[in-house]
Nucleic acid binder design. Structure first.
Lengths: 341, 341
DNA sequence: TAAGTTTGATAAAACGTTTTACTTAATGAT
DNA sequence: ATCATTAAGTAAAACGTTTTATCAAACTTA
């Protein structure tokens, strides 16, 4: 049964009607009698009619496609997001077209330009510094945009992300309550607000416990470092600061590399070094004695983002430009941060 | 600088030419003088002209979009694939539209039907039993399809995947060479040829070592089992067969659950139980003492698949229906399978 | 010079829809 | 019986391209 790809013109011919009538019936618009409607509907169903998306898109200017621009699809975090987003979008007849930027501004610009060639009705984007203009341009062209996992400070573009500041604060607070005194921070030297918020949470938690921040205990991994180098660097950092009794990693990428370092240095978790990492994943749950993590509410984040976007695309005329959702995270406590001594 | 979305008609007006002339120049088709060409090209460039994809699609029947249908984007394996595929496709001006099936046949059918509404020029699909008709239908409609990570036995549809049989054979062979005598198998009760091929590799490796297969040492995890149940079941299986000194897991999902079981049973790897799992990932490289794995050549698989597809879509008239690529894997040896005793 | 050929440019049709404006027939009101 | 209203259906334009067929002018050839 090969699809003959029939058009409304064909249906019109088969039913002795006009294409207008067919179109009206199929879209429930004009007023057409029950009998004719039924006849048309029957023929359409029997032949498995599907409208030509291109034609519809050309005529209406609506593609029913959403652009999802993420840093990299490889990660668990974005993978799970993509799943939820896809699922929800499909319910409303939207497809997802996915692009990754690999944290490269030019790639980000290209991707957005590419998507904006009328192909896409709305966007979910993980923001990077340098993309402000491009995103604002989209909005100026009436395309709904929702940022995810980050935001542009000072700009009124809706976003939804985990509450990075409080998550980090709580994580470090937890360490301090457990009796650890010298908590170090390992973060990446990327110009991302998420990371800055997390770092701020770390600092403020120390302050709340009346501990003076020791800048030496904060390590920023250079962005362009490869995995080999990174591990070397983190190892060196750990070795040079024996007084540290706990470490907070601001991303799971850093966290897993940290584990590798600690393993190679033959340190014991948590006796020699307690560990907390952002982003929960399988490694952290399995790795003995279990690594305490900040679990991002991926489902909620993704769901909120796509809901927000869909409501905009469905013609909701509310101004969502000021919607800024910071969703609380959950601290998953495991063996890596049990009470000291 | 808001995109005014100008059309070739606008360009024609601006340059005192006709839309035909503009179209010809922009596509390098007809014969138009140098001067006029330059004028048109200049105006187009200055205003950032981009053709309306919908219009092009409607007229030419070509969407420049590739459909990627996978089981789930969540996993590392498919995430990496997606990345490579996206990258290569982009070089030729194609975008990727991604859909997941979650191993649900109906969802698979729906997804393919949805994509086939003229939106998509070609497909990369992870096959599932029950989708044969739908895929053949696509091919009958002249849409190029490449299967990935699986195949349909008996059907001439091009595919590319890891050499499951030999990979499994080698893994088990490695265990036997290392001195393990009672090698068990944990696989999933899914009707997927990949898994069957892996199981066959296991059996034949035993045979090659003149070991009679003990059906009791083969465990098939029921498909619909949730994580809790699965772990319970695997634990029970391990406990009931104390004579086993090694286990081969046919997927990384099973492998990580297996680790959890072994941990809970307080068995030591590899002294009490040696372990090999299909699919390498971070958990296996980090988990002490390191888990030996079959590393799939994700890059090569993805690259071959997209190359194959692109060459077809670019009008290569070779018949690729018989292209069947089984790419060798690499056995990553780690502490979980060191020489016995 | 007449006839053929090449060069440069264009008009118009087509792709498959949606939608506006219109027609015709039937119904209702007075 | 007349006019207004409503119901049911349709013609035709438009969306932005690509491509075929055509045309006029310029250039060759004999």
């Amino acid at each position: 049964m090969i699809n003959k790809k029939l058009s409304i013109k064909d249906i019109a011919k088969l039913t002795n009607t006009s294409i207008t009538t067919v179109s009206f019936v199929l879209n429930g618009k004009g007023r057409i009698s029950k009998e004719i409607s039924k006849k048309i509907l029957d023929v359409a169903a029997k032949n498995g009619y599907e409208p030509n998306r291109m034609a519809v898109g050309l005529r209406t200017g609506v593609s029913k496609v959403i652009g999802l621009v993420v840093e990299t699809i490889g990660g668990v975090f974005f993978g799970e997001m993509a799943k939820v987003i896809e699922e929800e979008a499909e319910k409303e007849g939207y497809r997802i077209i996915y692009c990754s930027t690999n944290n490269n501004i030019q790639k980000g610009k290209d991707v957005i330009k590419m998507l904006s060639q009328q192909l896409v009705d709305g966007y979910i984007v993980t923001p990077m510094k340098g993309l402000e203009k491009d995103i604002q341009n989209l909005i100026a062209n009436e395309k709904p945009v929702v940022l995810i996992d980050g935001y542009f400070p000072g700009l009124d573009i809706p976003y939804v992300l985990v509450d990075n500041y409080n998550s980090a604060f709580n994580a470090v607070d937890h360490l301090l309550h457990a009796g650890y005194k010298n908590v170090g921070l390992v973060t990446a030297d990327l110009d991302l607000v998420q990371l800055q918020d997390r770092a701020q949470g770390y600092k403020d938690a120390l302050k709340a416990h009346h501990i003076k921040e020791d800048k030496k205990l904060v390590f920023k991994l250079p962005f362009q470092a490869g995995k080999e180098e990174s591990i070397k660097a983190i190892k060196a950092f750990i070795e040079q600061h024996k007084q540290m009794d706990a470490l907070f990693f601001t991303t799971n990428y850093l966290g897993t590399m940290g584990l590798e370092c600690i393993q190679e240095l033959q340190l014991s978790i948590p006796n020699d070094l307690a560990v907390v990492s952002f982003d929960d994943n399988e490694v952290f749950s399995l790795y003995p004695p279990g690594i305490t993590t900040v679990r991002q509410p991926t489902y909620e984040i993704a769901k909120s983002a796509i809901d927000l976007l869909l409501s905009q695309m469905n013609g909701d005329k509310d101004d969502i430009s000021k919607v800024k959702l910071r969703i609380p995270s959950q601290l998953i406590q495991r063996g890596s941060t049990i009470l000291k001594n």
